[in-house]
């Protein structure tokens, strides 16, 4: 989706403003919103790509005006309501009005340490062999899918070179629909910055992690 979340190369947002001695959270509610997002993510009611898709599908003006934890929280409300896990009246009241729906699992306190240490690998085993190898000349597809993708606009239809192959990983473009993890070979592709931006760049190279369907041989 060509959303406002796809910010690479946009201009006029101003300077980057680092904050000295920045705290982990700036408001008490950010702690709880962060932990709620992780705890609900751990239930399996939705996957990581569905969560990202929900966040980037917030209305563009709202997305740009929100802090990152506001975006996380807004995306979570959408995911909860889409699945009927809560309804709008319950969100307004902060109290249960309909029975809970089944969820795949719940993250209990006793499982937090092991869940954190384990993480959630996206590596998968798939049959066949990767089409490309490091050193291969490729071109990214010129595509504009209306659904979630991890191929940024700034590097579509561009020539690049494979610099690494990372095995097969869950493919966000399909996993975000909830149908299938549809794993695909994952590569790091190096682009000459001038092939992306012409002369208006101070970079020499930009590397993007690209799934095999994003690429064709050149």
């Amino acid at each position: 989706m060509n959303g406002v979340h796809d910010m690479g190369g946009m201009q006029d947002f101003g300077a980057v403003t680092p904050e000295a001695d920045e705290p982990w959270f700036h408001h008490a509610w950010e702690r709880r919103a962060f932990a709620l997002t992780l705890a609900m993510g751990a239930t399996g009611a939705w996957n990581l790509d569905q969560a990202r898709s929900a966040r980037e599908s917030l209305p563009p003006a709202r997305y740009l005006a929100s802090t990152y934890y506001e975006i996380w929280f807004g995306g979570m409300e959408v995911l909860l309501r889409e699945r009927g896990l809560v309804n709008a009246a319950e969100i307004a009241a902060g109290r249960m009005q309909e029975p809970a729906r089944p969820i795949p699992r719940r993250l209990d306190a006793g499982n937090v340490a092991s869940a954190l240490a384990l993480g959630a690998s996206t590596r998968r085993t798939i049959p066949g062999a990767p089409q490309f190898a490091p050193g291969d000349a490729v071109r990214t597809m010129n595509v504009n899918p209306p659904t979630h993708t991890r191929l940024p606009r700034y590097c579509r239809g561009k020539p690049g070179t494979i610099v690494a192959m990372h095995g097969a990983h869950v493919y966000p473009d399909v996993n975000s629909t909830g149908r299938d993890e549809a794993p695909q070979w994952l590569y790091t592709v190096r682009f000459a910055a001038r092939d992306l931006w012409g002369p208006h760049t101070s970079a020499d190279a930009v590397h993007v992690d690209c799934f095999e369907p994003y690429l064709e041989a050149r």
């Binding site: 709880r32 932990a35 705890a39 609900m40 902060g94 109290r95 209990d108 937090v112 340490a113």
Partner: peptide, 24 residues
């Protein structure tokens, strides 16, 4: 809003508030 949603999700049994404390 965050407090309201947290109490709702706890009441529904989707999240364990003690797990949230450990995550933080």
């Amino acid at each position: 809003r965050v407090r309201a949603l947290e109490s709702l999700l706890v009441e529904k049994g989707y999240v364990d508030p003690a797990a949230m404390d450990l995550l933080i």
